[in-house]
Every structure is written in C-alpha cells, then in structure tokens.
Nucleic acid binder design. Structure first.
Length: 783
DNA sequence: AAGGTTCCTG
DNA sequence: CAGGAACCTT
C-alpha cells in the first residue's frame, strides 16, 4: 500500500518533481545500437544496395506488359555496370545515393522511387531520430538545414530528400564507426554533421537517467559490432567477387539474348508485339538509369496476398514468354517455338539452365556463408541466423511452396530489389542478403489466411479458429520446430513476436485479429517463461544457439504444450502454473472492488496460481536473477546475462518466480489504475469544457459514457453483471476530485494527481469471497 | 535493499 | 499490457 500519510505526501509532492515527466528517455542503448548496426550492416554489407536502386521493374504494371525474369537479370547486369564501374573508388553510400539521384533526377520528388527510400528510408530516419532524441526533431533535421558541400552540389536536380537521406545514412554510419578501420565516408559532409548539436534540454535529460549500464553495454556492443564488421567486409569481398563473375556471365547471356530478340523482333513487328516493345523500352530505361518508382510503389503497396499472386503471375508469364517469344496464338503455343524457332527455344532453355545454375550457386554460397557462422557471435546486436533457415524448413515442409526454380525466380525477381521493403522490419537485419525468400515465406502464410480459407485441419486452421484451445497437434509440432510460432501467429498480427517486429501495413487489420489481439498478447507471457521452465532450451537448440538468441526471441519463439493446454477459456479450476488470460479477467473484475490491492491480498485471491512458476517474461526473470546475483546490483543485466545465466540458477527460481508473478499482478493493477485515472481526468476535463460548473452535476450511472468506457475496459464482454454500486460511487468521487482539482487549477502542479490518489486508495471495498475460489470466473459469469 | 508506485513508451 | 526508469517508503 502506498503511504498516503499527509506529511509524507506533501514531501512527495514537492520533492518528487519527476524529471521524467514528459521526457522521452531514450537511453535505450541496445535498441539504438541495434538500429545503428542494422543501418551499417545494410549499407556496408550490401553492394546490392545499389542493386536495389537500379533494379527496376520488379513487378510489371497493370497495363499488360509482360514480365520476364530473364530481362530483369539482364538488366541487373547492366545495373551493376552502371552502379559499380563509374565509381570504382567511391564509397558504397555514395554510389547508393548517386543512383538515387540518377533515378529521381529531374522528375517529381518521388520519395519512394529509390531503394533506400520507400520503407528503407523510413527505417533510417527512424533510427537516426531515435538515436538522438525524439523530442528534438531538429536534431534529425538540422544537418540538412545547413549548407552542405555535397559532392553532388553540382547536380541541381538533387532534391532535398536525397540530401537528407545521405545525411541520415552517413550520420548512422558515423555513429557506428568507432573503429578507425571502418571509414565508410570521408568527405566534407560528415564534418558538418559531426558536431552533434545536443540541446541543453537533452543533455540535462540524459544526465538524469542512469548511464552506467548503457556504457557497459555500449562497450560490448561496440566490440561485437566492429568484429562483425570485419567479417562482413571479408564476406562482402567474396560476394562481390562472385557477383562480378556473375556479371560477366550475364553479360554474355545478355548479348545472346539481344541477338535472338532482335531477330525475332524484326520478324514480328506487324503483330504489334507488346512484350517486345515494352522490353526494349525497359532496356532503354535501364540503360538510362531512369526511375521506375511506380513499380516500386506498386510493390510496396501490395498486399501480401497480392504480392504472392503477382510473383506467381510473373513466374507464369516468364515461362510463357520464354516458351513463345514470338507471341503465337494459343493453338500454336505448344509447337510454335519448336517449329518456327527451334534455335530460340533451345537458347531459352540454355539460358534458363544457366541462369538457374548460376543463381543456385549464388544462393547456396550465400546461405552457406551465413549458416557457417555461429549465431553466438553477436547475440544481442545480430539475432541468430538460424531463424531464416528454420523458416525455410518450415515453409518447405508445410507448403512445398518453392521449387528450386521458383525460389530462384523469387530471389531474382522479387526479393533482391527491395530487401528492406515493408518486410525489412520483420527480418533479421543481418539477413538482408541471405533471407531473400523470407518475405515470400511469410507472405505466403498471410496470403493463405487473407485470400483463401485456411487449410482444413492445418495448423493455421486450428490456431485460427480456436487459438485458446489449441490442439495437441499444434503444440507438439510447434515444439518440434524451434521457430514456428511467428509464422503461425502471423494471422494474429504476429502477437507472439517482438513488439518491434510487428508487420506494418494493411494485413494487420483483419477483424479477427483485432478481436484476438488482446487475448493473444496476454498469452505472450505464458508462451515464454513457462517454456523456459520445462524446456530451458528446447532440444533443438544447442546451447550456443540458445545463448545466441536474444531473450526477446526466445520469448517470442518458444511455446510449449502445457502453455497451450492451459489457455482453455474456462481454465482456472486446475492449479495454474502462471497467470492466464482468465487471471487477467479476474483481476479486472476485482478492480471493481479494489483499486489498490496489497500484494498479500493478491496472493490470497490468486491462490490457484502456483507461485513457484511464472508467466513473467524470461527477460523479467533474467532481470530478477541478475538483480539478485549482480555484485553491483544493477537493475538491468548486461548483454551477456542471458540464458546461460538463467540455466545456471534454476534452483533459485522458486523465489524469483514467486516475486515475479506477484509483481506482475501488481503491475496489472497499476495498469488498471492508470487507465482508470486517465479516463477520469479525460471526462472531468470534458465536463469542464462542456460548461459544467458544479460537481453536483457530475454523477455516474450505469448508462453514462464514462461508466461504459470503464466497463468496456474491465468487463469487456459485459458478462460480469454484478458491478458493485460502490464502484460507481468511487468513480463518481474520483471524477469529482479531478473536476475540482482542475477547476482549482491544481493541475499545474506536476504531482497534482497524488492528492486524488490518496483519496481514492481509501475507498477500496472488500472483495467478495467468491473471488478466492479458483472457479470464481465460472461462478461469477455463469450464474 | 526491497517492494511498491507512477510515468512514459511501445 | 509489458518494460523500463525514477522515485518513494519501510
């Protein structure tokens, strides 16, 4: 119970001028570094970044133009020449931006036309902003406002966005390059951005927050990042080498291709061959380095389902195009190529084979490079690489989606052009050049869900239809695969995923997913900590892998059978090993009686919860453990404080889990109060705005708006019909307190609400005995 | 030091 | 709703 003694309260009110009021505390070193690392990785690791820029017609427009994967590959060969050759000594970033400029130049300021832009630029922008501070947007903007001695100054066509992008990217890089060996930029621009203007306000804020630990983390992060960078450079060299070889091959193929196409072209001009015309123009476009922002836009705005459909259509079209380069009638389709252009068909076959072989090599090599790297190298900064592969496996197993051929085509046609499109957020940052097929995998699932009925009896079906009573089949299989849950959970807005990894875009808003959000998110806790209890590391994880996994990943990826079986809507009769959604519901109903339950009270009323286990997230658990065992009593564990540490201290878990589960209940009530008071303040102010002058006019009835809002929150299904009258009284008192305080102008005091809290906490009423029963929910809701 | 509370953020 | 940080009380 909070101390609401008046003197103490006074001192609290005066002393506790919280420095964090209205202040965004972004000492989130981990996330900042993660973001930086992501950015750097992208720019440094990705010569393909330039490829993105020059990879144009990912998907053809709706005007009927035929698509041809081969053409794109050929164009990419051109692109490499365009991108790499003219700037042998330029930095990657410079090339990247140069390409952007070329593409955007002269036309509209199409922000989305470039590979770095569309979603990518947003990512970068976000990163930079969050690196500094969200409260001072000037910091993000300031570099651009200054006169920049850009090496592209001469180019009048360069618009603001491009300079901004450049500055942002380089700003990120600068932040990363603590090691002198990584000099990714060196022109005058950096010097201008370099002195990071730290506003007094921000430095004040920064000083207020603890810095010790972030520094610790920074050091290890820096070491890891720089080590990683070296590896990446080496890999990049190798990959570049390969790509150059590929370029040569492709160029040769391209020449052959042109010859054939030109000959057939001249023979068939009378047909007004669309595909050939468009192809020629496309080639011209590619050579001119024009922007094809439109197709990029189309891509980025495609639904996952549409995306897949598009990709498939492309594949079909490509095959058709290759089978009948002459655009025969349907009847002659079969024999046409043979009879009229056996040579053409032969060449097409040869080209296909060679391309497939070449692409296979590239894919294999890339995958091999990454799979050979142990995930533990960069546990925190770079999440493990096994994930994409696991997803591959799951995908191949469940859907048999990609033949090698198709995968190659996806690789070449869809993914490479924009690896950081809207799905870039989902993927592991370090997998940009390796997990190309991932977006398709994920989208495949989503498209299955959204576009068509769920596969009968499939995992999706069971989870989708009855997520709270999932079958054993689901859970066992989920246990077999280390990382199935995000895939499974995708239809629910990836509820099990890390918050930062939510899928952007339209596919989030299906009604079902909205309905399920609340439940599923509350399941997150269950799905995680418990797994650690019984399967500290699933057998599929060698220890090194588990260590490499960030806690959040483990949290989101692991589930197990008991978790799922306990999610039954009417559980609560059996001894729970943690807090279930029903406990949440119960707690909410209890809030109608008590706003400030003591921890002892919570323990007695949630006696059916085994307090030796916890649904608390592994991270919390880890933090608890760390707090207990840290010599310095730091509140947060360093990066190395991970699964190993947890496993090493399993015997301490009883106490820790106990504490954690209680504090989770406490946290729930804290959250309830927060909502409650926010509503009160809101309605009090609204009443004032509505001209209410006397508290007498403020009353709370069961059909007033405020009550409905509260009831909606704590009794969503409205299946608890015994909301006590006392709650209405307390709510009315609270509302009037807020009203009076605001009228009196007390809300200028930062801690003006404390006085109200003091009043309200005395108004708790006794919680009925029935709430002590493990079956209280049934009894309460079904009488 | 530990537990609890609030504020803020995602 | 959870995580995290700061602050308060005991």
């Amino acid at each position: 119970m909070p101390d609401h003694d008046s003197t103490a309260l006074l001192s609290r009110q005066t002393k506790r001028r919280r420095v964090d009021i209205g202040v965004k505390r972004t000492v989130g070193t981990a996330s900042a570094f993660f973001a930086k690392a992501r950015a750097t990785f992208f720019s440094a690791m990705n010569p393909q970044g330039s490829e993105q820029d020059v990879e144009y017609s990912v998907v053809q427009h709706a005007d009927g133009e035929k698509s041809n994967v081969l053409r794109k590959l050929l164009k990419r060969a051109n692109s490499y020449e365009d991108a790499m050759m003219p700037f042998p000594g330029a930095t990657i970033i410079s090339q990247l931006l140069k390409n952007n400029m070329n593409k955007n130049g002269g036309t509209e300021p199409s922000f989305q036309a470039s590979g770095l832009s569309s979603t990518g630029s947003e990512v970068h922008q976000e990163d930079v902003c969050s690196n500094s501070s969200r409260d001072s947007p000037q910091e993000c903007i300031s570099p651009f406002g200054r006169p920049t001695m850009s090496q592209f100054d001469m180019d009048r066509l360069c618009d603001e966005h491009l300079r901004a992008k450049r500055a942002r990217v380089e700003n990120i890089i600068r932040g990363m390059s603590h090691s002198p060996s990584v000099a990714l930029r060196g022109n005058e621009n950096e010097r201008e951005i370099a002195p990071q203007s730290v506003s007094p306000r921000e430095s004040y804020r920064e000083n207020k927050r603890k810095q010790k630990l972030p520094q610790q983390q920074q050091q290890s992060f820096q070491q890891l990042v720089s080590a990683r960078k070296e590896q990446k450079r080496e890999e990049r060299r190798q990959l570049k080498q390969q790509l150059e070889d590929m370029q040569k091959q492709l160029r040769q193929l391209q020449e052959k291709f042109y010859q054939i196409y030109d000959s057939t072209d001249s023979e068939n001009d009378e047909d007004g061959n669309l595909s050939e015309d468009s192809m020629r123009s496309e080639i011209m476009d590619a050579r001119a380095g024009d922007s094809v922002g439109r197709s990029d836009n189309e891509m980025s705005e495609l639904d996952p389902g549409q995306f897949i459909d598009r990709a498939r259509a492309l594949i079909r079209e490509q095959e058709i195009a290759e089978n009948k380069p002459k655009r025969e009638g349907p009847k002659e389709k079969e024999q046409g190529p043979n009879s009229f252009h056996p040579e053409g068909k032969h060449l097409a076959e040869t080209l296909k084979q060679e391309l497939n072989t070449a692409m296979s090599q590239v894919v294999d090599t890339v995958v091999k490079v990454f799979s050979s790297k142990p995930a533990r190298q960069l546990p925190q900064v770079f999440p493990p690489l096994q994930i994409p592969q696991a997803r591959f496996a799951v995908n191949g197993e469940n859907h048999n989606f990609h033949t090698t051929n198709q995968r190659l085509q996806c690789f070449g046609d869809v993914i490479i052009p924009n690896p950081l499109d809207s799905f870039g957020n989902v993927q592991m940052p370090n997998s940009t050049d390796q997990t190309e097929a991932l977006p398709l995998v994920v989208r495949k699932n989503s498209s299955d869900q959204s576009a068509s009925a769920p596969p009968p009896g499939g995992h999706h079906a069971s989870l989708h239809q009855s997520p709270l009573s999932a079958t054993t089949g689901f859970t066992t299989s989920s246990f077999r695969h280390p990382f199935p849950l995000p895939l499974m959970a995708y239809p629910f807005q990836n509820p099990l995923g890390a918050p930062s990894a939510s899928f952007p875009g339209k596919d989030r808003a299906s009604p079902e997913s909205l309905d399920l959000t609340r439940e599923t998110t509350s399941l997150r806790t269950k799905m995680s900590a418990h797994h650690m209890n019984h399967h500290p590391c699933s057998p599929a994880h060698p220890p090194s892998t588990a260590e490499g996994l960030s806690l959040s990943l483990i949290k989101s990826e692991c589930g197990d059978l008991q978790d799922m079986s306990e999610i039954s809507p009417y559980s609560g009769s059996a001894m729970q090993e943690g807090l279930s959604p029903n406990h949440l519901k119960k707690a909410k109903l209890m809030f109608f009686y008590t706003r400030y339950p003591s921890s002892n009270m919570l323990k007695t009323y949630f006696s059916d919860v085994k307090h030796h286990s916890s649904r608390r997230s592994p991270k919390c658990f880890a933090n608890c453990l760390y707090r207990d065992h840290s010599p310095t009593n730091e509140m947060l564990p360093p990066p190395w404080w991970n699964m190993t540490a947890i496993r090493g201290h399993q015997h301490h878990t009883t106490v820790d889990f106990n504490r954690c589960i209680t504090s989770q209940l406490i946290k729930w009530f804290s959250n309830f109060r927060e909502f409650y008071y926010i509503q009160m303040e809101k309605y009090a102010r609204q009443a004032i705005n509505d001209g209410v002058t006397s508290t007498e006019e403020l009353s709370i009835t069961r059909d007033c708006e405020l009550y409905r809002a509260l009831n909606m929150h704590y009794n969503k299904a409205n299946d608890f019909e015994q909301v006590p009258e006392r709650f209405l009284e307390v709510a009315q008192i609270t509302l009037r307190e807020f009203f009076n305080a605001i009228i009196a102008g007390k809300d200028v005091d930062p801690s003006w609400k404390k006085a109200i809290y003091k009043v309200i906490c005395k108004l708790d009423s006794e919680v009925p005995e029935i709430f002590k029963s493990p079956n209280c929910l049934q009894e309460l809701l079904h009488e």
